[in-house]
Design a protein around this nucleic acid. Structure first.
Length: 107
DNA sequence: CAGATGACCGCAG
DNA sequence: TCTGCGGCCATCT
């Protein structure tokens, strides 16, 4: 029965990404690869980033909780760090998110 | 169709 | 920490 994944349209793909991002609890952070995996496109981490870049502000997306696998924030968006700090997320001395304790796991 | 781009991932020096 | 390399997929030109 293995349902084959249909080719998701840009809008549909974005909808899935936004849905997962909004599911991220406060005080937690998710990586692009993790989100891509949850929506069924583990190797499409780049598309997730594109979705975030195209993400409309009207959806109230906590995109600041989305960082790359290195715990690094988005380039040209240092404000994200401040937002995470306000959520109670801890950073390391190097300025990266401490994924060791704040990575969003479905516990 | 081919080439270039990207808020990526991992490894290596 | 930074840079370079290849790989992955979707989108744009």
């Amino acid at each position: 029965m293995a349902e084959k994944e249909k080719a998701l349209s840009r809008a549909d793909f974005y909808q899935l990404v936004y849905r997962v991002v909004q599911d991220i609890p406060p005080g937690r952070v998710a990586t692009y690869g993790q989100i891509a995996f949850l929506i069924g496109r583990a190797n499409c981490a780049r598309m997730v980033g594109q979705a975030m870049h195209h993400a409309p502000a009207g959806l109230l997306l906590p995109c600041h909780r989305v960082v790359n696998a290195q715990g690094r924030c988005a380039p040209g968006w240092a404000e994200q760090k401040s937002l995470l700090l306000a959520e109670g997320v801890g950073f390391k001395r190097n300025g990266c998110v401490d994924l060791r304790h704040y990575r969003w796991e479905l516990f």
